[in-house]
C-alpha cells in the first residue's frame, strides 16, 4: 500500500535536514505504529506525505499503490486515498463543519468520476457516523473546529476519516488530549474502518491507544530515521523503559 524509500526532507526556509532517510513499507490491511521522542520527525513525515508546503524532498520516494505521492497536489493525494488526522486540527472560522465535509466528500467523488452525494444522503450518513463518535448535531453546525475542545477536534478528525473512507490513514497523535472514554470511541471508530483494503499508520507516544488498536508492526523513529522495527511488544518496551535503551543500542 504505502512504500517509503530513503526519504530525505529538509526545511525549505532553512538549511535543516529533518528526515534523514526513512524507509517504511505498509501492506494492505496492516496497522503500523510509529513512536519516537519529541522532535524526531514523525509529524514532518505525515505532512510531507500529505503535501504540506515548506518542506523540500532531497531524496527518496513515497508511493501509494505504486503511484508517486510526492508529485501530486495535496487534494490529489487525498483523492488517491491518503488521509491525515492532524496532530493539531485547524480551526476555520466562517466555514461550517457540514459544508466543509460535504464539499470534501463531493470533491473526492468528483475527482474519481463518481456522482456527487445528494444532500439528503449525505446528511443521513454524517448523522449516523457522528452519532457513533458522540459528536452532537450542534458540533456539526459550528464552523470547522472553532470552539471545539481538544478531544472534540480529534473526534472530528475521525468523523472526516469515516466520511471520506480513505485507504491509507495516518493518525498523528490522535490519542493525545483524549480522555479515557473518548480514546475508546476513537479506537472503535478506527477499528470499525479496519479492512483488508485499508491501512493505518498510527503515530503515538503511548501504549494505551495501541491496546485498543492492535498494531501489526511498531517502528521507533529518532532523529529523522526509523531506528528500530518490531512487533507490538516494542511499544510495551517503550512504555516501560522509555527510549534510552533503544537509542543506546542503535547508536
Amino acid at each position: 500500500m504505502l512504500e517509503i524509500k530513503g526519504l530525505r526532507v529538509k526545511l525549505e526556509a532553512e538549511d535543516k535536514q529533518i528526515l534523514k532517510g526513512v524507509d517504511l513499507s505498509i501492506g494492505a490491511g496492516q496497522v503500523h505504529a510509529i513512536m519516537g521522542p519529541n522532535g524526531s520527525g514523525k509529524s514532518t513525515l505525515s505532512y510531507v506525505l500529505s503535501g504540506k508546503d515548506g518542506y523540500e524532498v532531497t531524496g527518496g520516494t513515497a508511493t501509494l499503490d505504486g503511484v508517486d505521492l510526492l508529485a501530486m497536489e495535496p487534494e490529489e493525494r487525498a483523492a488517491a486515498g491518503l488521509f491525515l488526522a492532524f496532530q493539531y486540527p485547524v480551526e476555520i472560522p466562517g466555514v461550517g463543519n457540514m459544508t466543509f465535509l460535504r464539499t470534501a466528500v463531493n470533491a473526492q467523488r468528483k475527482s474519481r468520476g463518481q456522482e456527487e452525494m445528494s444532500a439528503a444522503e449525505f446528511l443521513k450518513e454524517v448523522r449516523a457516523k457522528a452519532k457513533t463518535l458522540k459528536i452532537d448535531a450542534d458540533m456539526l453546525k459550528r464552523p470547522v473546529n472553532v470552539g471545539f475542545s481538544g478531544g472534540e477536534k480529534k473526534r472530528n478528525e475521525i468523523l472526516q476519516m469515516a466520511m471520506l473512507e480513505p485507504k491509507m490513514c495516518i493518525l498523528d497523535e490522535t490519542d493525545s488530549g483524549l480522555d479515557v472514554d473518548a480514546m475508546k470511541l476513537v479506537a472503535e471508530g478506527v477499528n470499525a474502518l479496519r479492512s483488508e483494503g485499508r491501512s493505518f499508520l498510527v503515530i503515538t507516544h503511548y501504549q494505551r491507544l495501541l491496546d485498543h488498536i492492535a498494531p501489526d508492526v511498531v517502528h521507533i523513529m529518532a532523529n529523522g530515521q526509523i531506528i528500530k522495527t518490531g512487533g507490538p511488544e516494542l511499544a510495551l518496551e517503550v512504555e516501560n523503559n522509555g527510549y534510552a535503551d533503544i537509542l543506546a543500542e542503535t547508536a
Partner: peptide
C-alpha cells in the same frame, strides 16, 4: 490562511475551491 488552505486541500478540496471557501468565510 495557508494552514487552513492546506487543511482543506488535505481533505480533497482543490486549491481553488478551498480558496473560494475561505473567501466566502471571510
Amino acid at each position: 490562511d495557508e494552514t487552513a488552505l492546506f487543511y482543506l486541500q488535505s481533505r480533497g478540496i482543490p486549491r481553488k475551491a478551498a480558496t473560494d471557501l475561505l473567501t466566502l468565510a471571510f
